[in-house]
C-alpha cells in the first residue's frame, strides 16, 4: 500500500535541510530582528532583505527556509515577498543598473538611455547580460528630478558593512558617458 500519509521523519529531514540553507550569519541577523517584534511576521520584510543582501535574490527554497526559521507560514512570507518591487525573485547579476523611468527623467530622455543600455548589454528590461554581470531594471522616480535624467547603479550583494556601499547615482546621462561606463564594467569584470 502506498503511504498517502505524510511521513513525519521525512518532514523532519526536510526541515533540517531547509535550516541548513540559511547561513549562520543570516540566522543570527534574523534572530536579532525577531527579538524586536511583538510577532514574528513583523520581521518578514527585513528578513527577506537580509537574505537578499547575501544572495542577491530570494529563491523559493530560501523562502521556505526562512518561513521555517521564523515560525511563520510559507504563504504569509511568500505573499510579502511577491508584493514588493525590490525583493528579487529571480537571479540578478552582481551589478544592478536602475535607470529612472519617472516622468521628469522621461521628459529629459529616459527612453533613449534605456534603449542605449538595452543595445549595449543586448538584453531586454529585467534581464541579465550574457556574461551574467549586469541586470537592467528601470525604477520609478528616484527622487532626483532636478538632476534628470538619472540612473542608480548598485551592487546586488553587499558585504553588510554600513558606510562601504559602492552605489552611485549617475546624473545627466549622455550616450558617451553610458558607453564609457559600460566599458568600465566590462574591463573590471575581465
Amino acid at each position: 500500500m502506498t503511504n498517502k500519509f505524510v511521513n513525519q521523519q521525512q518532514i523532519q529531514t526536510d526541515k533540517q535541510q531547509l535550516q541548513q540553507l540559511l547561513s549562520v550569519q543570516e540566522k543570527s541577523e534574523i534572530d536579532q530582528l525577531l527579538a524586536h517584534y511583538p510577532q514574528p511576521g513583523g520581521a518578514c520584510i527585513d528578513a527577506l532583505a537580509i537574505v537578499q543582501k547575501y544572495r542577491g535574490w530570494v529563491s523559493d527554497q530560501a523562502i521556505a527556509a526562512l518561513a521555517e526559521h521564523m515560525g511563520i507560514s510559507l504563504s504569509e512570507l511568500e505573499s510579502v515577498a511577491t508584493f514588493y518591487n525590490l525583493i528579487f525573485r529571480r537571479p540578478v547579476g552582481p551589478v544592478l543598473m536602475h535607470p529612472c523611468n519617472g516622468i521628469s527623467c522621461q521628459l529629459l530622455g529616459y527612453k533613449k538611455i534605456q534603449q542605449q543600455l538595452r543595445a549595449a548589454l543586448q538584453i531586454e528590461e529585467g534581464e541579465t547580460s550574457a556574461d551574467g554581470q549586469i541586470t537592467l531594471i528601470s525604477l520609478p522616480c528616484l527622487g532626483a528630478c532636478d538632476k534628470a535624467p538619472v540612473m542608480l547603479v548598485r551592487e546586488a550583494i553587499s558585504d553588510g558593512q554600513p558606510g562601504t556601499s559602492s552605489e552611485s547615482l549617475l546624473v545627466n546621462l549622455h550616450c558617451t558617458e553610458l558607453e564609457l561606463l559600460l566599458q568600465q564594467f566590462k574591463e573590471s569584470a575581465l
Binding site: G102, I103, S104, C141, G143, A144
Partner: peptide
C-alpha cells in the same frame, strides 16, 4: 517613502 513621481523634496 517619497515615491510620488516628480517629488524630490524629502530626500
Amino acid at each position: 517613502d517619497e515615491m510620488e513621481p516628480g517629488a524630490f523634496k524629502d530626500r
